[in-house]
């Protein structure tokens, strides 16, 4: 096995950390010095070698630790994984997409042998070997969506399409930026996006939904979204807000570089073949300000973006209370020099 997996935690003592390689390949989300919502959608996969855009489902040094954290969250709250009865076929579609992609893209980590519907799956990093019958749920220990997403980094929403809308009828959501799957299951695109400020009036959601409805078989796209999180915590759910909320107020000028993380979501869209559902993986990358600032372009740019951001967005994203401390800290990395276009470091 070529990849080394970190022994680290996303809660309690928070031993999560990024290697120099993880810092280099971090999906920094800003391609210019300002930010506002937009329909920022592009083809996926595709991108420079070694970036998280290269493969269908990126696997990195945090894989094993993230799957352990998901297991803890699910044990405490099984409602983080839900699937309405008509979504089981979409779950099989997703399982197929992930197993086939991972076995192709990471042959030394994952293997899939298929003989008709008799499948044999080997996941080396997690030590799983399973023979099962494709499309027969009795041959897996749980539903197909749950089975495969317990072995895949990132959250997953499965959207059913009807009445010219998308309906969030299934999901595995354990690393969300403060929204509740249990509350949102059964909602349509406009309903689950209702709390987002400004975007509806700007036409962003109408355009985005139109785009998604037109995504055809075999087409895949992605977009980046971001927020700010104190401590490297995956489970920033509303369910547990009263547990992680107090940590938000522990930021000081001395610790902000280490404790304040930029949280980037690599969101991808896949039309699924049998169910015609849309799969929406939301992969989360966390990096603290100190590590970001090791790339001079990123330090300068993040300072400008967070200093000038619309106050409604800072409030919605939950970092308004710490904005001044964050911006003061980042200002030391901004010498006023111009930044190059694009997201990659110089």
């Amino acid at each position: 096995m070529t990849m080394q997996f970190n022994d680290e935690t996303f809660r309690g003592d928070y031993t999560y950390h990024n290697s120099p390689e993880a810092i280099r390949r971090f999906p920094f989300p800003f391609d210019q010095d300002t930010y506002m919502y937009s329909v920022n959608i592009e083809q996926h996969p595709g991108g420079p070698k070694g970036t998280p855009f290269e493969k269908m489902f990126d696997v990195d040094e945090h894989y094993v630790a993230e799957m352990k954290d998901r297991e803890i969250t699910l044990a405490e709250d099984p409602l983080r994984c839900q699937s309405l009865p008509h979504m089981e076929l979409a779950g099989w579609d997703l399982l197929e997409l992930i197993m086939v992609s991972k076995a192709r893209d990471y042959p030394d980590l994952f293997t899939l042998h298929r003989d008709g519907n008799d499948w044999h799956w080997i996941n080396k990093p997690l030590g799983i070997e399973k023979k099962f019958t494709f499309l027969d749920a009795t041959t897996l220990p749980c539903g197909p969506m749950e089975y495969i997403t317990r072995q895949t980094q990132g959250d997953f929403a499965l959207l059913h399409e009807r009445d010219n809308n998308l309906w969030m009828d299934a999901g595995m959501i354990t690393s969300q930026a403060d929204w509740s799957l249990d509350f949102d299951v059964g909602m349509n695109f406009f309903e689950w996006h209702a709390p987002v400020p400004k975007a509806r009036k700007m036409g962003v959601f109408d355009k985005a939904l139109k785009f998604l409805l037109a995504v055809g078989q075999g087409q895949h796209y992605r977009r980046l979204n971001w927020t700010m999180t104190v401590n490297p915590r995956l489970d920033t759910s509303p369910e547990n807000y009263h547990k992680w909320g107090p940590e938000k107020r522990t930021i000081t000028p001395e610790n902000v570089g280490q404790k304040q993380f930029l949280r980037v979501e690599l969101q991808t869209f896949f039309r699924l073949p049998r169910s015609n559902a849309l799969a929406f993986p939301i992969r989360c990358y966390l990096m603290n300000l100190e590590d970001i600032a090791t790339k001079p372009k990123w330090g300068r740019r993040l300072h400008r973006v967070l200093r000038d951001i619309d106050p409604d967005l800072a409030e919605y994203k939950g970092f308004a209370v710490n904005q001044k401390t964050i911006v003061d800290y980042l200002s030391q990395f901004d010498d006023g020099a111009p930044t190059s276009p694009g997201i990659f470091p110089d």
């Binding site: 509740s180 509350f183 949102d184 059964g186 909602m187 807000y241 009263h242 107090p246 938000k248 107020r249």
Partner: peptide, 27 residues
């Protein structure tokens, strides 16, 4: 027994508005 603020966010599946701890960050 938590003190909750009243959101306008509504789930038709559950037929409820969402209540969220109002003093989570500053108990």
């Amino acid at each position: 027994g938590l003190t909750l603020f009243v959101r306008d966010h509504f789930s038709r599946r559950l037929g409820v508005f969402q209540g969220v701890c109002v003093d989570a960050e500053t108990p």
